[in-house]
Amino acid sequence: MEVFEPWRLILAAVLAGFLHFQVLCTSDVAPNYTFMQEATKAPPVAYYDYIIIGGGTAGCPLAATLSQNFRVLLLERGGSPYGNQNITNLATFTDTLTDTSPTSPAQSFVSEDGVVNTRARVLGGGTCLNAGFYTHADPEFVQKAGLDLDLVNRSYQWVEKVMVFEPQLRQWQSAVRDGLLEVGVLPYNGYTFEHIYGTKVGGTIFDKDNHRHTAADLLQYANPSGLTVLLYATVHRILFKTKGQSKTAAHGVIFKDGAGNEHRAYLSKETDKGSMGEIIVSAGALGSPQLLILSGIGPAQHLKSLGIKVLLDQPWVGQGMADNPLNVIVVPSPSPVEVSLAQQVGITRLGTYIEAISGSISSDSLD
């Protein structure tokens, strides 16, 4: 029996949209996304061929591609990145991460181990918050994962046409590059997306005007008549059919809008192409297992302790979470320095990655 592997669908989605390239949008001006609206405008009940939960780095390109042939609903619990200067401008990079308001695109949390972290809560996901460095995966990793390397490379091009730029190295980043070479992180590979040992300049999702481009920009590939994007739509539960079925199957979701009103979205019984659609969970490493647990899929004992009816005892849901180890060295400057995010990297054969950023952080941001 063939096992369904979600990454195949995501890569196919990225590739399928390759021929539907449209006019680029600027990151600080909202594009004319006629299919995007706040969830308060959604009907109480609606039907779609595909329902995608989470409008991040995977959800946006997947929705854009599926909309070419199907009716697609994309549910995002946050708002739009467009018009939010803290997201779009390089100079205000840290302001987004320190915003603790209820509608902040950056939701802070503390793990059970006491680690302070942030998860995205905005259309475009982590591409709205990160340092904007762009690089390709290690080809060896791609092959070990069983992916089609040619398909992966063509998928990269689809993304790069919309949201990847060559950085303009200024004083600080140039000094970092020279320092890496001086201490022996060799050879110097220049400007490249390839994952190779040594020091290189990678791509950036900030354009020449220092405006950020995000995964939300990939929605310009979408068929407007085939896609509905709802903002501030928080999914509370996935609905499953259990009676009269040979196997349990997801058939809908319950979500609430920003005003607290409940809505339901269901899969159409049959798509226009004659096949059943799917509910795709792309809510991130934290949001996806959380939603599965709320829907009754997870470790049985944990579900019972929360008063959640067990639909499927799956002990690995929500387990094995780990973050990449990170060592930070802060070098204070007696005078203001330019704002720059990661534009280059030193990749060593020990498996370490050396990057640097610069800028000024107010004392209020550190409280």
Score class of each variant (00 low, 15 high):
residue 224 P to K: 08
residue 254 I to C: 05
residue 187 P to M: 06
residue 125 G to K: 04
residue 91 A to Q: 15
residue 149 L to C: 02
residue 229 V to P: 06
residue 51 I to M: 05
residue 48 Y to A: 01
residue 129 L to K: 04
residue 134 Y to F: 14
residue 100 T to H: 15
residue 160 E to H: 15
residue 294 L to S: 11
residue 53 I to R: 04
residue 321 M to D: 06
residue 151 L to M: 14
residue 18 F to Q: 06
residue 288 S to K: 06
residue 97 L to V: 12
residue 98 T to P: 01
residue 329 I to H: 10
residue 294 L to G: 00
residue 58 A to T: 10
residue 19 L to V: 07
residue 316 W to T: 12
residue 200 K to I: 00
residue 9 L to S: 05
residue 208 K to V: 14
residue 3 V to I: 13
residue 93 F to Q: 01
residue 299 P to R: 11
residue 168 Q to G: 08
residue 108 S to D: 10
residue 44 P to I: 04
residue 251 H to M: 03
residue 234 T to N: 11
residue 40 T to G: 00
residue 257 D to C: 10
residue 61 P to S: 05
residue 298 G to E: 00
residue 22 Q to G: 06
residue 164 V to D: 00
residue 230 L to R: 10
residue 349 R to N: 14
residue 323 D to Y: 13
residue 310 V to Y: 05
residue 292 L to S: 10
residue 214 T to L: 01
residue 254 I to V: 13
residue 178 D to R: 15
residue 244 G to W: 05
residue 327 N to V: 15
residue 56 G to Q: 09
residue 314 Q to K: 13
residue 57 T to K: 06
residue 333 S to C: 14
residue 317 V to W: 04
residue 367 D to E: 09
residue 83 G to C: 03
residue 188 Y to C: 05
residue 65 T to I: 03
residue 41 K to C: 04
residue 74 L to V: 09
residue 213 H to G: 05
residue 346 G to S: 10
residue 323 D to R: 09
